[in-house]
Design a protein around this nucleic acid. Structure first.
Lengths: 222, 222
DNA sequence: GAATGTGAAGGTTTTCACAGCA
DNA sequence: TGCTGTGAAAACCTTCACATTC
């Protein structure tokens, strides 16, 4: 039985569902290593601290992958999720700002593992320009627009100070890049057709702080 | 008129509301610098890409801060939110794992700005132990439990490889720490009374990837 | 007049519960 | 029998709309 996926899902997929797909993907990678052939929604749920019903609902948005009485085929489901998430391919990523966070991200293995290949580095610091990071030469941000276009960059990670982030993003947008991951603690303006996500690492600490101060009992762990 | 806060909020505060409080806090800090004395829910909403009703609802959970016809007093509201979030104080933080991400976090200014003071560093690498990072000597992870207790650490940031994260967290829990921010790409087990949040930087990239592949139109930016 | 605070409405997400299938 | 797939119910969250206040 093939359901919603044909011709695009009929119902909006929620952001939470997408984030949970990432979790399933990671769990399935592990299960694969542990030589599981199939996995039940119950087991998947347990590993990701979710409910079995939630797992089944999420997966059912994209079709019927499972076998009643048995569960889901690990390798196949993993592949399907990779396709849904668009990580069954390589994305050409540029990283702007080779400072503290930037340098850490160059070596962050999870990015490469999911197909996000950092192939260009930029900075505005003369001491860094021309230097070598993990086999890549740091380019001058002055030629950002042109170099992004030439290198056919599809995703940009912004790791520059908040004060300059907007100018840089304006350039990035002009280069036709449609996806931006921003680490600068500022709200960036981008056109409607550009996807922008913010990574704010202090936010989770603030949540912990709130929880401790208020004895907050979360419904469920993120 | 004082509302829900007295004696603890009567309704559960949602995770989203708490995260938005972080956004408001940041916006208010900026407004303060721009010498705004008051701000309307409309203006706050505009700056954080939310709706005015949402802003008012969020704030109303914690009491009536605003003045009808005028808006909210910037400085006072900022202080109140800091109190609600528990960031009107200093939290003693230890960072475990002084690798790529760990080193970046030591210098990450947003942490200190919100009262999260990293006061202890740990690693298991003999070459790093004893070395100096931003005025702190890296301690041997072998004495983790004891040193966490002695240093009265309240929050731990885990930035070690996934393979060892669980062992370390077990130690951290034994030291009585009740809040953990985990950067390792793995699901950690902690007792019920320990708050655990995961920071998964690849997840947002995966969301971008999904959005591009599926022409996803998000309802609203995170 | 301007903008808050908030019940009620509307919408979305999660959970339930069970029919259906291997 | 075991476990999926899914409508329906429940829970939750957001938006509306307006009485209220400055």
């Amino acid at each position: 039985m093939q359901s919603s996926q044909a011709g695009g899902p009929k119902k909006r997929i929620s952001e939470s569902t997408i984030h949970r797909l990432s979790l399933y993907y990671r769990a399935l990678s592990l299960l694969e290593k542990e030589n599981y052939e199939t996995v039940s929604s119950k087991e998947l749920a347990k590993r990701e601290k979710l409910t079995p019903a939630q797992v089944r609902k999420d997966l059912s948005f994209f079709g019927s992958f499972g076998t009643r009485g048995l569960g889901y085929p690990v390798t196949e489901l993993k592949k399907r999720i990779a396709t849904i998430l668009g990580i069954d391919r390589v994305w050409r990523v540029a990283l702007i700002g080779v400072g503290n966070i930037g340098s850490a991200l160059v070596s962050y293995k999870e990015f490469a593992k999911q197909g996000f290949h950092i192939v260009k580095l930029f900075d505005n610091d003369q001491r860094k320009i021309g230097s070598n990071h993990k086999g890549m030469i740091v380019s001058d941000i002055a030629n950002l627009e042109q170099e992004l276009t030439e290198a056919r960059i599809e995703v940009v990670v912004v790791a520059v100070p908040a004060t300059v982030a907007q100018y840089i993003v304006d350039d990035v947008v002009r280069a036709g890049v449609k996806a931006i991951l921003n680490f600068a603690p500022i709200n960036l303006r981008v056109p409607e057709d550009v996807y922008l996500r913010n990574e704010n690492m202090a936010m989770e600490l603030e949540y912990l702080s709130f929880a401790m101060v208020n004895n907050h009992t979360p419904k469920r762990v993120k």
